[in-house]
Nucleic acid binder design. Structure first.
Length: 827
RNA sequence: GCCAGAGUGGUGGAAUGGCAGACACGCCGGCUUUAGGUGCCGGUGCCCUUUGGGUGUGAGGGUUCGAAUCCCUCCUCUGGCACCA
C-alpha cells in the first residue's frame, strides 16, 4: 500500500501571483534591507551595475539581479551590515531620441521608465535599500558630477585640446576611443569618421601606469579576460625615442620604437599622412602628391583600413633625414600604415626586422638591411625574433654579437649620451574624450570669455541646469543643441562680468557612472558628492555584478575616478571593487534576442506565467553565473514544480516552532547540516547553481522522511524545512516567506539568520569505500571515516568480489587511500 | 594571423587526480485521477543474453596504481586582440 493513499486527491497548490501580492506590502512595511552603518557588525557593500531606463526590465536584468540578490541576501542572512543600493544611469541618447520622435522632453521618457523599472524591481523582490536611490539626471546628482569635473580641472586632469576625433555621423556626436569598436560606434553601429575639433578630455593617461600596477590587487578577484583586455587597452610598451635630423630643417623627426637595437637597419622613415609634421616636412614639389594621397586616405574608412592584407601605400615627401647611427641619408615618406595618434606619429622603418616596413620597402624599392641574424631555419621575410645583432656598428658603438636585450640597452645608452634620444615607456591608452554634442547629459560647468578664456563656474553657482528643450530643439545637427538655447548659452563671465558663453557640450554619460557607487554611501548628501568617511566605511565594494561589455569602458573609467579621488584625499580605497563577476547573457535558441530574429523573450511575461520566484530560480539554477543562458533550454515550469514541492514540506511539518532539534532523527539532521554546510561554501565560491542543487536534495530527502521515514512530527523535519526556507529565501523570497509563515514564524525569513551548523553532524558516520582491482571497481564497502589503512586493506582483500577478480594472480601493490579507496594492483 | 578559455548523456549542467553523469529538464513505464499543464513510485550514457560483464568525458599520444581532471600534438567552438612601430 502506498503511504500516500490517505492523502487528499486534490493537492493544494501555491497561488504564486496571490503570494506576491500578499508579501510585497509586508516587506515594504518592514523595510528589512536598510544599511545600518552603526559599526556594530562587519560591513559588506553589495554592488550591481545600475540600470539604464530604456523601457522595462528585460531578461538580462532578470539574470543579473537574481544572481546579485543571492549574494546580497546571503550576506543579510549571515548578519553582515549590508549596503545594497539602487539607482539609475538616467542620462543618455535613447531618451533624447525618443523625445525628438515624440516631441517632448527627455525627462518624461526617462522618469516614466524609471518608475516602471522601480516597480518591476520591487515585484522582483530585490533586497535593495531604497533610501539610497539616485538618478544621474537629477540636478542634485549632476551638480556633483560638475563639481567633480571642476576638481579634475583644477588638478589639470580635465583639459581642452584640438584634435582629430572620432565622430559618429548617426548620433551626431564625438566618441571616446573606448566607444569605437572595430571602427564602428559602440552604441549604434555606424561607421565612425574623423573630425578636427576642440574638445574636453580627462587625462586618464596620467594614471596609465597605476591602472596597470593596481591590477595586482584585482588578480584572482576579477575575471582574467577583463584584466587582459584592460592591460591590452592600456598597452604599455618599453622602448626609446630617437631623433633623426632632417636635411635643411632645425626640427628633427622624433620616433618611438620598441626595437632601438635595430636602428642600424633603419633605411627610411614614415610619418602619419594626416599629421601636421607631414605637412611641414613636405617639399613644395611633393605637396600635390601628399594632398592627393591624403584625400585617398580620408576616403577610406577606418573599417576598410582595418581589413586584412591591404597593400602598403604612401608617398615620398621629398625630404631626407639622417640615421644618427649610420650617418646615412634616408628618405621620408607619408603612409597610412603609421598611425597619427600612437607614439610620435612617426617611425623609423627597419624592413629587415619589421614585416610592415618590409612590405613598404618592397613596393617602393627601398633598401633592406638585416640587423639581427635569423636562425638557419627562418624562411620568411622580415625577422623579428631573437638573435644576435649584425651589421650594427659605427666608430663609437657596436652592437654586433649582442642578443636583443643587451643590444637595446647599449644603443639606448649611446643615444642618450650623444643627445640622439632616450629610453621611454609608451602607452596605447589615449586621454578620455568626454565632450558630447548632445542634450540629455550633464552640462560642462565652464564659461568661455573672450578676455579670460575658459572660466570655471563657481561651486556656489552649481548646478548648471539644463535649459528646457524638447522635440526638434534636440535634433542632432552636428553642434550641441545647447548652443542654440541662446538664453541659456549667453551668460556673464564669472571672473570679469562681461558677456560670455557657456560651454554647450554635455559630458559623456560614462562620467556620471564613474562615481555613483560613492554617492550610494551617503545618499542625498547636500554639501558634497559623498561623505568621505561614509565612503571609507563601505569602500571598496565587496563584489560588483555586471556585464563584460564594459571591460574597457565603465570598468576602466570607474577605476580611474577612484584613483583620482584617492589622490584628492577623498577616498582611502584605490580600487572601487574588490571582486567582480560578469554574468553571462540570456539568449534564446542559440542567438542574442533581437526584434529582427523574432526570438525575444519578455521578462514580465515570464513572471506573469511562472511567478517571480520560478523565474529567479531558473536564472540561478541554469549554470555558473558567468555562462550564457539559452532560455530555450530552460524549464521555468520545472522551477515552479520544485517550489511547490518545497512549499508543501512546510505544510506537512506538525511539530511546534522552537522544538528541540537535538531530539530529531539523526539521519535527517545530518543531511540538513551537510546541505547547509555545502551550500555555504558554494555561495562563498559564487557557485549558486550547485547550491540550488543541494537545496533540492535536501527537499527530496525531507519528503522521504515525512512520507516513509521519521514522519512529519519529528523535530528533524522542522529543522530541515526551516533550513530549506532560509536557503530558499536567497533565490525564491516569496515561497520562502510563505513557508516561514506556515512554519509558525513571523516575517521576514530574509532576516531569520543563516542556519547554525553543528560540525559533528557534518562529518558522515560512514563512507562508501571503493575497492578497485587494476583500477576497476570490483566492490564497495561501508566503513567508518576513521578506518585505518591496515584495516581497510585487510577488509578489501577479504572481499569475495575482490578475491574473484584477483583470481590467484600475484599482488604487485596495494594503494590505500583511507577511507575512500583501495586499489589492488596485480600481475 | 596572435593570445586566452572551453569541448562531459537527447538538453542545462555536476564531478578539478580516486564510484563519471550530482541536481534538474526531457523521455519511458506504473499508481492516483472524470480529466491532467497535478502528485507519488520506478527506470533512463552506450553495447552485450541476465540479478553479471564490457565500454564511455572532441581525436590521438604521454605521465600515474589510478586521468573528464595534469602534460604534448591535432580538431572544433567561444571570447579578446589585430598595421600599436
Amino acid at each position: 500500500m502506498s503511504p500516500n493513499t490517505d492523502q487528499p486527491t486534490q493537492r493544494a497548490a501555491l497561488d504564486v501571483q496571490a503570494v506576491q501580492e500578499k508579501w510585497l506590502p509586508v516587506w515594504t512595511e518592514l523595510d528589512p534591507f536598510r544599511a545600518i552603518d552603526d559599526g556594530a557588525r562587519e560591513r559588506r557593500y553589495a554592488l550591481t551595475m545600475f540600470s539604464y531606463p530604456s523601457g522595462d526590465l528585460h531578461m538580462g536584468h532578470g539574470e543579473v539581479f537574481a544572481l546579485h540578490d543571492v549574494l546580497a541576501r546571503y550576506w543579510f542572512q549571515r548578519g553582515y551590515d549590508v549596503l545594497n543600493p539602487i539607482g539609475w544611469d538616467s542620462f543618455g541618447l535613447p531618451a533624447e531620441n525618443a523625445a525628438i520622435k515624440r516631441n517632448e522632453h527627455p525627462a518624461i521618457y526617462t522618469y516614466a521608465n524609471i518608475a516602471t523599472q522601480a516597480e518591476s524591481l520591487r515585484r522582483y523582490a530585490m533586497s535593495f535599500d531604497w533610501s539610497t536611490r539616485l538618478h544621474t539626471s537629477d540636478p542634485e546628482y549632476y551638480r556633483w558630477t560638475q563639481w567633480l569635473f571642476l576638481r579634475f580641472y583644477e588638478r589639470g586632469l580635465a583639459y581642452r585640446k584640438a584634435s582629430r576625433v572620432n565622430w559618429c555621423p548617426n548620433d551626431q556626436t564625438v566618441l571616446a576611443n573606448e566607444q569605437v569598436v572595430g571602427g564602428m560606434c559602440e552604441r549604434c553601429g555606424a561607421v565612425v569618421t574623423k573630425r578636427q575639433l576642440t574638445q574636453w578630455y580627462f587625462r586618464i593617461t596620467a594614471y596609465a601606469q597605476q591602472l596597470l600596477d593596481d591590477m595586482a590587487l584585482l588578480e584572482d578577484h576579477w575575471p582574467a579576460p577583463i584584466l587582459t583586455m584592460q592591460r591590452n587597452w592600456i598597452g604599455r610598451s618599453e622602448g626609446a625615442f630617437i631623433d633623426f635630423p632632417v636635411e635643411g630643417r632645425d626640427e628633427p623627426i622624433r620616433v618611438f620604437t620598441t626595437r632601438q637595437d635595430t636602428l642600424f637597419g633603419a633605411t627610411f622613415m614614415v610619418v602619419a599622412p594626416e599629421s601636421s609634421l607631414a605637412k611641414r616636412l613636405c617639399a613644395p614639389e611633393q605637396e600635390d602628391a601628399l594632398a592627393a594621397y591624403l584625400e585617398q586616405v580620408n576616403r577610406s574608412t577606418e573599417v576598410e583600413r582595418l581589413a586584412i592584407e591591404q597593400p602598403k601605400t604612401g608617398v615620398f615627401l621629398g625630404a631626407y633625414a639622417v640615421n644618427p647611427a649610420t650617418g646615412q641619408r634616408i628618405p621620408v615618406y607619408a603612409a597610412d600604415y603609421v598611425l597619427a595618434d600612437y607614439g610620435t606619429g612617426s617611425i623609423m622603418a627597419v624592413p629587415g626586422q619589421d614585416q610592415r616596413d618590409w612590405d613598404f620597402a618592397e613596393s617602393h624599392d627601398l633598401p633592406i638591411v638585416r640587423t639581427v641574424q635569423p636562425p638557419d631555419s627562418f624562411d620568411g621575410k622580415a625577422y623579428n625574433g631573437a638573435g644576435s645583432a649584425i651589421n650594427s656598428a659605427n666608430d663609437e658603438v657596436s652592437l654586433d654579437g649582442l642578443p636583443v636585450d643587451q643590444a637595446k640597452a647599449r644603443i639606448t645608452t649611446w643615444l642618450t649620451a650623444n643627445g640622439h634620444g632616450e629610453g621611454t615607456v609608451n602607452f596605447r591608452l589615449r586621454d578620455w574624450l568626454l565632450s558630447r554634442q548632445r542634450y540629455w547629459g550633464c552640462p560642462i560647468p565652464i564659461v568661455h570669455c573672450e578676455d579670460c578664456g575658459e572660466v570655471p563656474v563657481p561651486d556656489d553657482e552649481l548646478p548648471v541646469v539644463l535649459p528646457d528643450l524638447r522635440g526638434q530643439d534636440l535634433a542632432p545637427k552636428g553642434t550641441s543643441p545647447l548652443a542654440a538655447a541662446t538664453e541659456w548659452v549667453e551668460t556673464t563671465c564669472p571672473k570679469c562680468g562681461r558677456p560670455a558663453r557657456r560651454d554647450s557640450d554635455t559630458m559623456d554619460t560614462f562620467v556620471d557612472s564613474s562615481w555613483y557607487f560613492l554617492r550610494y554611501c551617503s545618499p542625498g548628501k547636500k554639501d558634497g558628492p559623498f561623505d568621505p568617511e561614509a565612503a571609507n566605511r563601505w569602500m571598496p565594494a565587496a563584489n560588483y555584478f555586471g556585464g563584460a561589455e564594459h571591460a574597457v569602458l565603465h570598468l576602466l573609467y570607474f577605476r580611474f575616478f577612484t584613483k583620482v579621488l584617492h589622490d584628492m584625499g577623498m577616498l582611502d580605497a584605490v580600487e572601487p571593487t574588490r571582486s567582480l563577476i560578469n554574468q553571462g547573457q540570456v539568449i534564446n535558441r542559440g542567438r542574442s534576442m533581437s526584434k529582427s530574429l523574432g526570438n525575444g523573450v519578455d521578462l514580465g511575461e515570464q513572471i506573469d506565467n511562472y511567478g517571480v520566484d520560478a523565474v529567479r530560480l531558473t536564472m540561478v539554477f541554469a549554470g555558473p553565473p558567468e555562462d550564457d543562458i539559452d532560455w530555450a533550454d530552460m524549464s521555468p515550469g520545472g522551477s515552479v514544480r520544485f517550489l511547490q514541492r518545497a512549499w508543501r514540506l512546510a505544510g506537512d511539518v506538525s511539530s511546534q516552532p522552537g522544538v528541540d532539534f537535538g531530539r530529531g532523527d539523526l539521519a535527517l539532521r545530518k543531511a540538513t547540516h551537510r546541505a547547509v554546510h555545502e551550500a555555504t561554501e558554494l555561495i562563498e565560491a559564487f557557485r549558486f547553481n550547485v547550491m540550488v542543487a543541494r537545496v533540492m536534495e535536501l527537499v527530496n530527502v525531507t519528503r522521504k522522511a515525512i512520507d516513509s521515514g521519521c514522519g512529519p512530527d519529528d523535530p528533524a523535519v522542522r529543522e530541515a524545512v526551516e533550513a530549506v526556507a532560509i536557503m530558499l529565501s536567497l533565490v525564491a523570497p516569496y515561497t520562502a516567506e510563505e513557508m516561514w509563515e506556515q512554519l509558525g514564524h513571523q516575517p521576514t525569513v530574509a532576516k531569520a539568520g543563516w542556519p547554525k551548523i553543528d560540525e559533528s553532524l557534518v562529518v558522515p558516520d560512514s563512507v562508501t569505500c571503493v575497492i578497485q582491482v587494476g583500477g576497476r571497481v570490483r566492490a564497495r564497502l561501508e566503513v567508518t571515516p576513521d578506518v585505518t589503512e591496515t584495516e581497510l586493506e585487510r577488509l578489501a582483500l577479504a572481499h569475495p568480489n575482490v578475491r574473484r577478480a584477483i583470481d590467484g594472480m600475484p599482488i604487485r601493490m596495494v594503494i590505500v587511500r583511507a577511507p575512500k579507496l583501495v586499489n589492488v594492483v596485480v600481475g
